[in-house]
Design a protein around this nucleic acid. Structure first.
Length: 649
RNA sequence: GCUGCUGUAGCUCAGAGGUAGAGCACUCCCUUGGUAAGGGAGAGGUCGAGAGUUCAAUUCUCUCCAGCAGCACCA
């Protein structure tokens, strides 16, 4: 029999008979490895312990000691075990797919009755029985017809559809967990007992469309999480609890930032504290934009449909627009208007006033543009996804050959702002041409290359979002993550060849002829609303001092100190610090607790001693330690801290 | 928008076919207390909206609205 050579991760190689399985390889190394082995990698491909190897290869045996492929396999098999448990309890449930996801897996089922939380408990119990039974996993490769016939006979239409979607030359693998059978490309465990029975948990059930298509059946998706041991599971559940405490919707209430109510779904009632954050951020952005070479403009909210027809929004975006029709009773002419969902068409109107020269380009036109979009009800989420919001929007009108420079310049601009706001790390997604698009391939080639080159030149790495570009041009998205791990697009930078054409924007080139400018749509924060939500979650409510709505509370310990408290507050306010007095008839403990919950960064406590010595006792949020400082010293220090980052030396 | 769940005092939540309760917050009184809740009293609710069943609905049914989770959407 032919010999093959297998190379181990440590660089050593050994010869085996061709057709050897990783299980046999593991056994040849040690009894304990044979027992602990979960799966293998063969030349980087994830390999079942029972699959033969018939060529020279690099091999690694995976155990649960390493987090990677072995844990993934556990999660994968748990998906099958869950599907089996469900079908054992409810034989008429139809099974579909169940992939591994971050921290666990899900499986989609078709069942008339909804799964209840009690059902989840029952499924989990049955899963534990299956694991305890150490059911063997075995596999067979089936001809396509046999598999289709099997699933048709068993009334599993989803599986038949899945088989249809598998390329004809790929072998169809059938797996059995005990008596229960599923279609799966593998690899798999050797038996169900390899799953740590106390390290998984079913989390939730929710609807999900079959094949992600909203025109197709709504299935029930059960989510589970799994880890290599019980401690990891507990740590994960604890992390979820901690994350829930950072939720901006909870902190927004505790910090008295804003509220929302039924009469205005998806819109925000900003309270004084929240509005303070908003305006502080806006002031900062305005300064940055000025320094960055932008001009600021402002454009109408309610605009005649004619403009939206010209821009193409009426056609492509109408269902997301608030349409405004004036009652004929009190209007002479009944015009149909729409609240602007975007600022771009209005900016082109400003660009189009008067003749523009190539000398005017690049023209960077910024607006804190209030937009209204009729977002689907299910998409609304706190202040992160709303129907009324304000973008830190700008459009750069430039020549094609300026795209790269402007892109690089923008990424630098955004990076500095994100750094100032406490985001050292953000992800960049690059979306290239979609199937349906405007403009020639040649133009797309140039635009894509310009974005890519600029991103690399700016020192950022990007993930490719293949085919996800806008129909009018490629784009970069700058993504931040919220407390619960959900991604939110904040910054964006998009090339647009179409709108200048549709709205007939031109400039006079050096050759004296009219030319079409390119538009770059760009935003750093995205929207103030979303960004503030992210900011709150990122900092768990403990905003950087300069952004905190109430920076200092000066709290009296005894009422004899009230006069001095007001003097301290006045001094701080004069020095540009947002300070308040708390002279209520409450104990200092009570005041400290209340303002700590409210995330006030600094509490200055004042009793007899401080009055006599003209000092304050400083307590910083999150610190138990206090510190006595003279009034002048603390006013100077806090005044410096209150200075926004762009104004510091 | 779709599936499921939820909606009771400002907040967090309990409750039941016979028109409601707790803690915190709020108001007043006592207390002047040294770093995460001092004590007492009081006030506060068309039980999300509408319709139906019933002698009687906040409770059961239906419709709608909003919120939550996920999916779809996010040009």
């Amino acid at each position: 029999m032919a010999q093959i050579s297998l190379t181990f991760p440590d660089g050593n190689a050994r010869d085996y008979a061709a057709g050897v399985t990783p299980a046999e390889v593991a056994a040849s190394i040690s009894k304990s490895l044979e027992k602990k082995a979960i799966s293998a990698s063969v030349d980087g491909a994830h390999w079942d312990l029972q699959w033969p190897i018939d060529r020279d290869a690099a091999i690694a045996i995976h155990t649960l000691a390493d987090d990677g492929p072995a844990l993934e396999l556990i999660r994968h098999d748990l998906a099958h075990i869950m599907a089996r448990a469900v079908q054992e309890i409810w034989p008429d449930v139809k099974v579909t797919i169940g992939p591994v996801i971050e921290n666990g897996w899900y499986y989609d089922f078709d069942r008339a009755e909804p799964f209840t939380p009690e059902d989840l408990g029952e499924i989990e119990k049955r899963m534990k029985q299956i694991i305890a039974a150490r059911e063997p996993v075995r596999t067979e490769v089936w001809p396509r017809e046999k598999a289709v016939a099997h699933y048709e006979a068993n009334g599993e239409p989803y599986k038949v559809e899945l088989i249809d979607a598998i390329p004809g030359d790929e072998p169809l693998r059938m797996y059995w967990h005990g008596d229960w059978q599923d279609l799966c490309r593998g690899p798999h465990l050797q038996h169900t007992g390899q799953v740590p029975g106390d390290a998984f948990k079913l989390m939730s059930v929710a609807g999900a469309y079959w094949r992600g298509d909203s025109s197709r059946a709504m299935l029930q998706r059960i989510y589970g999480v799994a880890f290599k041991n019980r401690d990891d599971l507990k740590a994960h559940l604890h992390m979820l609890e901690e994350a829930a405490k950072r939720d901006h919707r909870k902190l927004g209430r505790e910090m008295d930032l804003y509220h929302m109510q039924e009469e205005a779904p998806g819109q925000i009632f900003w309270h004084p504290n929240g509005w303070s954050i908003y305006t502080t951020l806006q002031d900062y952005m305005r300064r940055q934009q000025r320094a960055g070479g932008y001009v600021e403009v402002n454009t109408p909210q309610v605009v005649d449909r004619k403009l939206w027809e010209a821009s193409g929004h009426w056609d492509k975006y109408q269902e997301h627009m608030f349409i405004v029709e004036v009652d004929e009773e009190h209007a002479r002419e009944k015009a149909v208007n729409a609240l602007k969902p975007m600022n771009c068409p209005c900016h082109v109107q400003i660009f189009n006033q008067g003749l523009k020269s190539y000398r005017d380009l690049p023209l960077r036109m910024a607006e804190f543009g209030s937009c209204n979009r009729y977002e689907p009800s299910g998409a609304l989420h706190g202040i992160m996804r709303v129907r009324g919001f304000t973008q830190d929007d700008a459009h750069i009108f430039c020549r094609e050959d300026q795209i790269e420079d402007e892109t690089k310049r923008f990424i630098d601009f955004l990076s500095e702002i994100y750094r100032d706001l406490g985001f050292e790390n953000f992800r960049v997604k690059f979306s290239d041409r979609p199937e349906v698009r405007a403009g020639s391939d040649e133009t797309w080639d140039k635009a894509e290359a310009a974005l890519k080159n600029a991103t690399i030149a700016a020192g950022s790495e990007f993930e490719l979002n293949s085919g996800e570009g806008a129909f009018y041009g490629p784009k970069l998205e700058f993504v931040l993550t919220d407390a619960i791990g959900r991604d939110w697009q904040c910054g964006t930078h998009q090339v647009d060849f179409v709108l200048p054409e549709r709205l007939d924007a031109t400039y006079i080139g050096a050759d004296g002829a009219k030319h079409r400018p390119v538009m770059l749509h760009r935003a750093v924060l995205g929207s103030f609303e979303r960004f503030i939500g992210i900011l709150i979650e990122e900092h768990a409510g403990k905003l950087p001092f300069w952004l905190a709505p109430r920076q200092v509370v000066v709290a009296s310990i005894v009422s004899e100190a009230d006069e001095y408290v007001h003097e301290v507050v006045a001094k701080l306010q004069k020095a540009g610090v947002r300070a308040e007095a708390d002279t209520r008839n409450e104990k200092i403990n009570y005041k400290v607790r209340e303002h700590s919950v409210g995330k006030v960064p600094v509490i200055l406590a004042i009793g007899h001693r401080e009055v006599e010595e003209r000092t304050v006792t400083v307590r910083r949020l999150g610190e138990k330690q206090t510190e006595v400082q003279t009034l002048d010293a603390i006013v100077g220090a806090l005044s410096a801290e209150a200075t926004p980052p762009d104004r510091r030396d």
